[in-house]
């Protein structure tokens, strides 16, 4: 696998860089070339907060080949800013204690090893807020 496939996603996976439409203000993650709301083409680069609210989740018990050593693991949809949601794993959590509506922090973590060369792919995963207090 060519490293370019991995490193061109660094701004999003490492820094949560999003794009805010300069005309209507709609925010996109990942950034787009054209706004799907007002069709404007100029954007301001912004960074999303490293936290959000769990909208829905599942526990993957039959994983795809690239995640076969990780199952079972939780994946959820997390609202990061109002109207903007992302999908990622939820880790360091008791799988029985997940609940829609709970607050989560996002952390920089190893996601998977890509391709036959096993290029390490990093990105964001969610962890429960409570772990920070304990």
């Amino acid at each position: 696998m060519f490293p370019a496939k991995i490193w061109r996603e660094f701004p999003q996976r490492y820094r949560l860089e999003a794009a805010k439409c300069k005309k209507c203000g709609k925010t996109f993650f990942p950034p787009r070339l054209v706004c799907n709301s007002c069709f404007h083409r100029e954007f301001e680069s912004i960074k999303l907060p490293w936290e959000g609210t769990l909208v829905t989740y599942t526990i993957i018990r039959t994983p795809p080949s690239s995640f076969s050593d990780q199952a079972p693991y939780a994946v959820g949809i997390i609202e990061v800013v109002p109207g903007l949601k992302i999908t990622c794993q939820i880790v360091d959590v008791d799988l029985d204690k997940l609940a829609s509506g709970q607050k989560l922090f996002l952390e920089f973590r190893l996601i998977q090893k890509d391709g036959k060369q096993g290029v390490l792919c990093y990105g964001y995963k969610a962890v429960p807020v409570a772990d920070y207090n304990s």
Partner: peptide, 21 residues
């Protein structure tokens, strides 16, 4: 592929997210 599957979600997983909602 880059923003869903990359994170380990499967098709049963995606429909499970819908089912829970």
């Amino acid at each position: 592929q880059e923003y869903e599957s990359f994170h380990g979600i499967t098709f049963p997983g995606l429909y499970a997210l819908i089912a829970r909602v």
